[in-house]
Computed example of a mutant assay.
Amino acid sequence: MDMQGRTHIELQELLGLRHYVQHIELFSTPLQRSTLLGLHRSRLRGRGMDFDQVRAYQIGDDSRSIDWRVTARTGEVHTKVFHEERERPTFIVAEQSLHLFFASTGCFKSVLVAQVASIFAWASLQHNDRVGGLVFDDNGVTHTPAHRSQHSVLHFIQALADANQRLQQTMSQDLKNPLIEALQQALRLTRTGSLIILICNERHLNDESSHLLRRLAAQAELILLPVSDPLEHCLPTIGPARFALADSSTSIDTHNPRLRQQWQEKGAAYQAAWQNLAQQLGAALLPLSTQFGALEQLQAINLQQVLGTQAGS
């Protein structure tokens, strides 16, 4: 991959990811149990009804649902049973802030987020769900209302590409945690019963963002995808090193054993915090790393196993 592909991603590349959805089992076909959260029948899609089964007639059943063919064949009155057609609007909250404009290996975290968010958007549309979301950066939030249409997905992906292309190392500003505003917006914009897919910087989790995620979990299903880089969890021994962000920089001695231990402990603390929160919320936790490609990581996902483990804990 060239340097442009590592640091930024074009709209055309995000559009092309739709061709890979069939190779990633994020959602099952309608005839199978959903691989992505076995909860798809827990939300309504209006007044539509799908045929479920035929069983013996019981007092109180609607006589209009009697299956006369089966009744004539068996000599016993049978009725058709229907279940309500379900909907789970998918709302993708994806970060494109300067916090993600970094990687020690592979593509930048911002590129990885854009790729994963696009794949989830295409997969949701293919699964016939309404798709929308928020793209947030250091300057605010771009909202795409959820609709069951390719136009909605294209609008969301365009917002991703635009925000990604705006990122540049020379940006000079007092960086804050942009996740807070994004979650506040999500609380206002998402409807009860939505599926919220959050793809953000691993280090944005704090008391305030945790509180907002708890509020979201009370009204929606959550999939949490915190993004990190290997360097954030293990400091390589390379001697004196200088780190720069916008107009500020700092130098450290990577040979310092105490510094290396503190560095590793801080990374592990963020991982543990996400794990604890996901367990408390009953949410799927799928950490992402710049060490691996987006397709490789999504192909390795087994959400049923993740959710089953959390349910039994």
Rank of each mutant, 00 (worst) to 15 (best):
D229P: 12
Q310L: 13
R260K: 15
Q173L: 13
L44I: 01
S210D: 06
E84G: 05
Q158V: 13
Q297D: 08
V135Q: 03
R203S: 04
S249C: 10
L307N: 07
V153P: 09
A246I: 05
V21I: 08
T35P: 04
R188D: 12
G140M: 10
E202W: 00
H151P: 02
N302C: 02
M171R: 15
A163C: 06
E87L: 01
T254C: 08
W68L: 09
R69V: 10
R242D: 09
T237F: 05
Q184P: 04
E202K: 07
G293F: 10
S124R: 01
Q169Y: 09
L167E: 11
P89D: 02
N302D: 15
H151Y: 13
A218V: 00
A94H: 07
V54T: 09
Q12R: 10
T7L: 11
H204R: 02
H211P: 00
S97V: 07
C234D: 15
F292C: 04
H233A: 08
G60L: 06
Q115Y: 01
C200N: 01
A182V: 00
A186M: 05
R69E: 06
R73H: 14
E296Y: 09
L288D: 02
D207A: 14
E181L: 14
S194H: 05
G267K: 10
I24P: 04
K176S: 09
I196Y: 00
V227N: 08
A56G: 06
W274G: 14
P30N: 05
Q264A: 11
V93S: 00
G293L: 07
T71P: 09
V306P: 00
H155Y: 08
Q291W: 06
Q310E: 07
I238R: 15
H143T: 11
Q168N: 15
Q262N: 11
S194N: 04
G38Y: 07
S313W: 12
E232P: 06
W122D: 02
S34F: 05
V227D: 10
H233N: 15
D50R: 08
I223T: 12
K109Q: 04
V113R: 03
Q304N: 14
A220F: 03
D52F: 14
L235W: 12
S313P: 03
Q58R: 12
G308A: 04
D50V: 10
H127S: 14
L298Q: 03
L167N: 10
V135F: 05
E87K: 01
Y270K: 09
K109W: 00
P30C: 03
L212N: 03
Q58V: 12
V93I: 12
D247E: 15
A186T: 13
G48P: 01
R188Q: 14
R214S: 13
G132R: 03
Q297I: 09
P287H: 02
A146E: 05
S248V: 11
T309C: 01
K109V: 01
D50G: 01
